[in-house]
C-alpha cells in the first residue's frame, strides 16, 4: 500500500510541478520586463546576440532585473552547450 501511495505521489506531482517551475520563470521574466522600456529591448537583443554567436539553447538563457536597495541589478545567465564551451 505504501509503495502504491509512493507511486501515486510521484505521478501526481510530476506535471503540476513542471507547470509551477515554468510559471515561476516566465512570471519573473514578465515582471522584469515591466521595468524601464529598454529592458525588454535589451533582453531581446542579448538573446539575439547569444543565438548569433553560440548554439546555446535559448531555454537556458535568462535575463532578469532585480532591485536591491537603490540599485537595479541586471542578471544574465547563459548556459553554453558543452561542445562550444570546449572549443572556445
Amino acid at each position: 500500500m505504501t509503495v502504491f501511495n509512493l507511486i501515486r505521489y510521484f505521478r501526481r506531482n510530476s506535471s503540476a510541478q513542471t507547470a509551477k517551475n515554468r510559471l515561476h520563470i516566465i512570471i519573473a521574466q514578465e515582471k522584469s520586463e515591466q521595468g524601464p522600456d529598454y529592458i525588454q529591448t535589451l533582453r531581446r537583443e542579448i538573446l539575439a546576440l547569444v543565438s548569433k554567436y553560440t548554439e546555446a539553447d535559448l531555454d537556458k538563457v535568462s535575463v532578469q532585473l532585480h532591485h536591491k536597495d537603490n540599485n537595479a541589478i541586471l542578471e544574465l545567465n547563459v548556459t553554453l552547450p558543452d561542445k562550444v564551451a570546449t572549443t572556445t
Binding site: R22, I25, Q29, R44, L47, A48, S51, L58
Partner: peptide, 16 residues
C-alpha cells in the same frame, strides 16, 4: 507559447 513549450525562446513576437 506555453502550450507549445517554447515560452523561453520567444525573442521577437508578431507585433515586433
Amino acid at each position: 507559447d506555453l502550450i507549445m513549450g517554447c515560452e523561453r525562446r520567444v525573442v521577437y513576437d508578431i507585433v515586433n
